[in-house]
Design a protein around this nucleic acid. Structure first.
Length: 864
RNA sequence: GCCCCGGUGGCGAAAUCGGUAGACGCAACGGACUUAAAAUCCGUUGACCGCAAGGUCGUGCCGGUUCGAGUCCGGCCCGGGGCACCA
């Protein structure tokens, strides 16, 4: 056996072994229990980053572990290959997005392969290939037939200089990223998918997903946002026009406290009022220019302006002024709200600002109410006061009574509304899946017939930033109307890339079929047994995938409704970000590897300087690794210097996988050192010659102690990987075992036998995490078989047995002593032993013992 | 602003069901080996008091429940993720 640990050699050998034997080729086998282990596929951005390493190592550890449990494991990989960065790269270097994407896929495939992942590469897919995206188009047409896909207008960011639609990411402080022009909002026709039709089942089914993290289910439930409330009508007569202003409220019990109504800038009443009021028209225009992003909308200053119109209170008949408010969302509810300043914080703020009356109508436990300043309990539930016949009613009763009265007057009814909005999938971009529609002057938008699919995306175009190049590409545009045969134009919008990622996990099961979107193999492999990906996908991607799967289920294409049985959300990988901001011009970011940190001896201040010029740079804190912040760490350098096993071990050990991982260069060294120690331990053991069979029945106590620890570690690692998914503690346990084996100096044959067993257990435990090292060491330990085909060993329960256990003794909850008692001793014996302990007696003193709490096998607490 | 998550030594973290706070690792310091360095190995390391035995304090802050709270409850502060066209 080679004395030195040389990762480059053993990793190449192990990977060659797996590759030549097709170890990870997965085939359908009804006689075996399948395990579909899926990591979110990467966007081929150029090179792998540490987030990928973390994601795919977690998946690989589970895939390899489940394989050792005897499961028929499928672990596939593919590319989320359409998207904006490819177009940005094209603008920057004049290369077609297809070429850039293909190059990136080749690079990243090579990088992923160097990590030694147990992937069935025969099943690889890329969403930019026609044999994949044609099925996006095909299913879109099925949705169109059923009205699940439909056309309506939507709002986009418009750069007036480049005459192009911008993504939210391309809007910086309200200006276009390239031109700096003030971005405008524009209404254009788009295609939507009616995910709201599935709001209820998507919400209800969350309860049937026990394998999902609670926090993700909570986030999705909040996102879908079911609200039970009352739709209230405020009738009005404005000039000749008679109508009813409709608002939705979950707090109909506060209806008697309404002192104003507010409508969104896009609301018809706002438009009507603005017609004859230039100041209001200007305000409406200002609101419409304002931010399109909810986060910005919610943090902007709340502003309003009166329309001059009044509506009638549906119960009291009182005149209620109508305002336009920049905080009212047209997309939620009715695009109008009733203002109850006394019991809604936002309305309170608005009323204070504009001098509107505040009328208190809810009493909470008789607490004194003041209109001076808002208190959070003002919004609590209570009983109606100053509300006429509703006085004294608690919330539920008041809501029911008011809803009934409104219904009688024809001005309201109980209603359920959802926060969830339909999914707009049209993108005015080139590098995406073409929407299979033809625009005919006479027939309007006409679906492309199935026989003409796929609508191929031309791959040689180079966008220049001035809009979608498809719109200037005659060969793509020119076509005939499938309905009337007249010359027509092809739709140039492409689909949101979330469409691509909403069903890719199905295609892995049958990526070789050209005849259909999916086939029967899907029902063997799916649903995914374990899905692993970043927490940043907790809502959108996962909800869209759940929706898409349900649509496919309802079309009879798949037999299941939920695609992912178990979900694991890994934390983000963070790193410090360094930058300089020149007096004029764009912020420049510097990679942390180019920055040196030292501590100023005088004021203990951290000083960061750029290695290249010695000048100071500013630290922007610790944030997600990203290209735009230039704070990524290149895993390839790590693999080249230390090997894939060190990279894998470090990312699994440095933090629990669900939490954020803060990058540090130190610690990689530690991981490497540990692997060298494991290698050395096996080397020393093998070097000492052959090993006699273990004689379990006649071992000495020191030998039994080693066996106890070995099997305890085996049990713990199995539990940590298989149930808890805490790979960091599994590794720590193996480290402890290795430390103990290292201290153990074998003197006789049985010492060596016990050590041999311990080393085998350590190598088996590590094999899902550092498979190359384990592959090599397993052979050195005398096996002809490959460790990748080994089963996870059973724990020897007899080895775990212990004659005595240590019991901790507390006095008044403070640790005061320890006593050893026979394992299995009853409570009275433990209590007696604890009270007899000298240290305990000293602390108990002469005081009377009030109580003794005995926790069997653990602890005694004496209360005096 | 809203929704979700987190905060424990110099640092990453552990404590799985309310029961020994700091396992494991990094860094630092001391020592061994070496002509020297690297590598490796051994030891020390939460704070404070004490010669020591030992004691007191300590899990972001304030309060509560409990024999016992890092863990449960209420209120706050700070950090991260998401907010629908980044993926």
């Amino acid at each position: 056996m080679q004395e030195r640990y040389e990762p480059a050699t053993i990793e190449a050998e192990a990977q060659k072994y797996w590759e030549e034997r097709g170890c990870f080729a997965a085939t359908e086998d009804r006689s075996r229990e399948k395990y579909y282990c899926l990591s979110m596929f990467p966007y081929p951005s150029g090179r792998c980053h540490m987030g990928h390493v973390r994601n795919y190592t977690i998946g690989d550890v589970l895939a390899r572990f489940m394989r050792m449990q005897g499961r028929n494991v499928l672990q596939p990989m593919g590319w989320d290959a359409f998207g904006l960065p490819a177009e940005n790269a094209a603008i920057a270097n004049g290369m077609p997005p297809a070429k850039w994407t293909d190059d990136n896929i080749a690079t990243m495939r090579r990088q992923l392969k160097s990590l030694g992942l147990a992937i069935d590469w025969r099943r690889e897919i890329a969403t930019c290939r026609p044999d994949y995206y044609r099925w996006n188009q095909w299913l879109f047409l099925r949705m169109l037939e059923r009205g699940i896909a439909y056309r309506k207008t939507g709002v986009v960011n418009w750069d007036p200089v480049d005459r192009t639609v911008l993504a939210n990411e391309q809007v910086i402080d309200g200006r276009g990223w390239r031109t700096g022009a003030l971005v405008e909002k524009r209404e254009i026709p788009m295609y939507y998918l009616a995910i709201t039709r599935y709001a209820e089942p998507l919400l209800e089914a969350l309860a049937q997903l026990p394998g999902w993290p609670e926090r993700v289910r909570t986030m999705q439930a909040n996102w879908i946002g079911r609200s039970e409330g009352v739709n209230v009508g405020f009738p009005y007569e404005i000039g000749e026009t008679r109508g009813v202003l409709r608002v939705f409220t979950t707090r109909a019990d506060t209806l008697m406290g309404v002192t104003f109504c507010a409508v969104a800038a896009e609301h018809p009443l706002a438009a009507l009022a603005a017609k004859d009021d230039p100041a209001l028209a200007a305000f409406v225009a200002e609101c419409q220019r304002g931010p399109a992003i909810e986060a910005e909308l919610a943090t902007q200053e709340k502003k309003g302006m009166p329309t001059g119109f009044s509506v009638r209170h549906p119960l009291s008949g009182e005149a209620i002024p109508v305002w336009v408010g920049n905080y009212v969302l047209m997309s939620y509810g009715e695009g109008a709200v009733m203002g109850v300043p006394a019991h809604d914080e936002r309305d309170f703020e608005f009323a204070k600002k504009y001098g509107l009356p505040i009328r208190r109508v809810i009493d909470v436990d008789g607490r004194p109410y003041s209109t001076q300043a808002w208190e959070s309990w003002y919004a609590d539930h209570g009983r109606c006061v100053d509300s006429g016949r509703y006085d004294g009613m608690p919330t539920a009763a008041a809501v029911a009574a008011i809803a009934a009265d409104l219904a009688r007057a024809g001005l309201g009814e109980l209603r359920t509304i959802w926060r969830l909005r339909d999914w707009g999938i049209s993108r005015q971009r080139y590098w995406g899946c073409p929407i299979p529609i033809i625009q005919c002057a006479d027939c309007g938008p006409v679906p492309v017939p199935d026989s003409d699919l796929p609508v191929l995306l031309p791959e040689e175009l180079v966008p220049d930033g001035s809009g979608n190049p498809l719109a200037k590409h005659e060969a793509f545009l020119a076509c005939r109307c499938p309905r009337c045969g007249a010359p027509a134009r092809r739709e140039t919008d492409t689909m949101d890339t979330f469409v691509d990622s909403s069903w890719y996990f199905l295609r892995y099961a049958c990526n070789d079929t050209a005849a259909s979107m999916v086939d029967a193999r899907v029902d063997y492999w799916l649903p995914v047994d374990q899905y692993i990906g970043g927490i940043e996908h907790a809502i959108l991607h996962l909800l869209y995938s759940r929706f898409w799967t349900r649509v496919m289920h309802d079309l009879g294409l798949v037999s299941f409704q939920e695609p992912f049985t178990n979900l694991f959300t890994q934390g983000m990988v963070l790193n410090e970000v360094f930058y300089r901001k020149p007096a004029s011009g764009r912020i420049e970011y510097f990679n942390p590897t180019d920055v040196e940190i030292r501590i100023d001896p005088d004021d203990k201040r951290r000083i960061a300087t750029l290695r290249s010029d010695g000048g100071e740079v500013i630290s922007g804190g610790v944030v997600t690794m990203s290209k735009s912040k230039n704070n990524g760490v290149d895993p390839q350098a790590l693999v080249e210097e230390y090997g894939a096993d060190t990279a894998r071990l470090f990312t699994m050990f440095a933090a629990p996988p669900e939490q954020t991982l803060e990058w540090s260069d130190e610690g990689v060294q530690g991981a490497y050192r540990f692997l060298k120690r494991v290698w050395k331990a096996v080397y020393d053991h093998v070097d000492a010659g052959p090993v006699a069979p273990l004689e379990r029945a006649s071992l000495e106590e020191t030998q039994r102690a080693i066996r106890r620890l070995s099997h305890h570690t085996l049990a713990k690692v199995g539990d940590d990987i298989g149930r808890r998914r805490t790979f960091n503690t599994a590794i720590a346990a193996v480290m402890e075992l290795m430390n103990a084996l290292g201290r153990f100096e074998p003197r006789g044959a049985q010492d060596r036998a016990v050590l041999h067993e311990g080393l085998e257990i350590a190598v088996l435990c590590l094999s899902p995490i550092v498979p190359h090292l384990a592959h090599a060491l397993w052979r050195e330990l005398g096996h002809d078989t490959a460790i990748v085909d080994e089963r996870w060993p059973a724990v020897d329960a007899a080895a775990l047995e212990q004659s005595t256990v240590e019991i901790v003794v507390q006095v008044n909850g403070k640790l005061r002593g320890r006593v050893a008692v026979p394992s299995g001793a009853d409570a009275d014996a433990v209590r007696a032993a604890a009270l007899a302990d000298p240290a305990v007696r000293r602390f108990v003193g002469d005081g009377a013992i009030r109580k003794v709490v005995v926790v069997p096998g653990k602890l005694v607490n004496v209360v005096v």
